[in-house]
Computed example of a mutant assay.
Amino acid sequence: MKHLIDRYLASYNAFDVDGMLSLLSRDVRFENYSGDQLTAATSGIADFRQLAEQSKSLFSEREQRISGLEFGHDAAIATIAYRGTLATDIPGGPSAGTVLDLQGTSEFSFDNGQITKIVDRS
Rank of each mutant, 00 (worst) to 15 (best):
D74Y: 15
T105M: 07
A78M: 14
L58H: 13
F59H: 12
D120T: 00
L4I: 05
T116S: 03
E53H: 10
S22V: 01
L69Y: 13
A78T: 15
Q114M: 03
L100T: 04
L102N: 13
E53F: 09
A10I: 03
A76T: 14
G104H: 07
Y82F: 15
A96D: 07
R26K: 10
I118F: 04
F30N: 04
N13S: 12
V28Y: 02
L69D: 05
R121G: 00
R121A: 01
D89V: 11
A76M: 14
M20E: 06
L21D: 08
M20T: 03
G92S: 05
E107T: 05
Y8L: 00
I77L: 12
T39Q: 07
R62C: 11
G97Q: 02
L51E: 12
T88E: 12
Q37D: 14
L4M: 05
T116N: 04
R83A: 12
L51T: 10
T116F: 01
R7F: 01
S34D: 09
I118Q: 02
E31H: 05
Y12F: 15
D120R: 02
D89Y: 10
L100F: 07
Y8H: 09
Y12A: 10
Y8I: 01
M1S: 11
A10Q: 06
G93S: 07
F30P: 00
A75L: 12
S60N: 10
A76V: 12
I77K: 12
N112H: 05
Q64A: 12
Q37F: 13
Q37M: 12
S34M: 04
S25Q: 03
G72L: 08
Y8K: 00
A76Y: 09
H73Y: 05
K2S: 08
R49Q: 13
G84L: 08
Y82I: 08
I90F: 06
A40L: 15
N32F: 11
E70D: 13
I115W: 02
D27R: 00
G35T: 06
F110H: 08
E53G: 07
G68N: 14
Y8G: 00
R121F: 03
K2P: 11
Y33C: 01
A96Q: 10
H3I: 11
M1E: 09
F15A: 06
F48L: 13
R65C: 13
A10V: 02
D111F: 03
A87C: 07
I115S: 01
G93P: 03
D89S: 13
I90P: 03
F108Q: 02
E53K: 14
S43A: 10
R83W: 15
R83T: 15
L38E: 01
F30S: 02
N112D: 08
L69F: 14
V17C: 06
D27A: 04
A40R: 14
